[in-house]
Amino acid sequence: MAIRDFLRERFFPHMWCPGCGHGIVLNNMLRAIQTLGMSKNEIAMVSGIGCSSRISGYVDFHTLHTIHGRALAFATGLKMSMPELNVIVPMGDGDALSIGGNHFIHACRRNIAMTALVMNNRIYGMTGGQFSPLSGYGTLATTAPYTNIDHGFDVVDLAISAGATFVARTTTYHAKQMADIIREAIIHDGFSVVEIMTQCPTYFGRKNKLGDASNMMEWMKDITTPVGSKAKEENPDLIERGIFVQKELPEYCSEYNKVIERAMKGRS
């Protein structure tokens, strides 16, 4: 099956800006799904609000486009009622960690089997380039014309501390690695978080004078290094990419079934 078969082609060309990294995420997420050989009916994509969340409209799976920050809450309800579905939750950085920050940490803690993709472009693109909790100290944004003084979250550290059982980071430059990691995340039986560093050339790139989309991808290549590499020891400012955590813990839906069995005491 070609990846075009997973698209709702009637909505193309998509609404993202030229060079937007979200299209690269869509591209390689579909390649990951293609290698898994899943049918469209086995997958549900639940998204919230933002440029990133528009991804669910372009894929021909079961899709839910829900409310800002609450995609994981909707996805939890869906997964509890239909645990046989593979649930994928694409979110932007603001959607996942600002408006949806509480849902995010508790979904990590519960270890419910779903895949959270945090498409981190470090800005609120759809609403005009306001700074997000991942913009980082010293960056420029529409709402931070004299530089942002908020420190950013580290999505990977946050997800690990909150208890996610699969945590990884990649970038749009590393497209092949992205597809491999998303594939691993989907087959993981537990809550998986994949941070994908992506470019918003329209707002983050232009405000911070990072050049065009290609320059921003080169920049992401330069500021990242494979997890556990020597380069990180020499330059601690480098951001590690790869799989950080991959462990087995009891999964929420199967544990909940055990609770039902205990409550029913063998009655049907």
Partner: peptide
């Protein structure tokens, strides 16, 4: 196929 993998427009 690096162009195919990195094309944000799937074009």
């Amino acid at each position: 196929k690096l162009c195919e993998l990195r094309c944000p427009d799937l074009a």
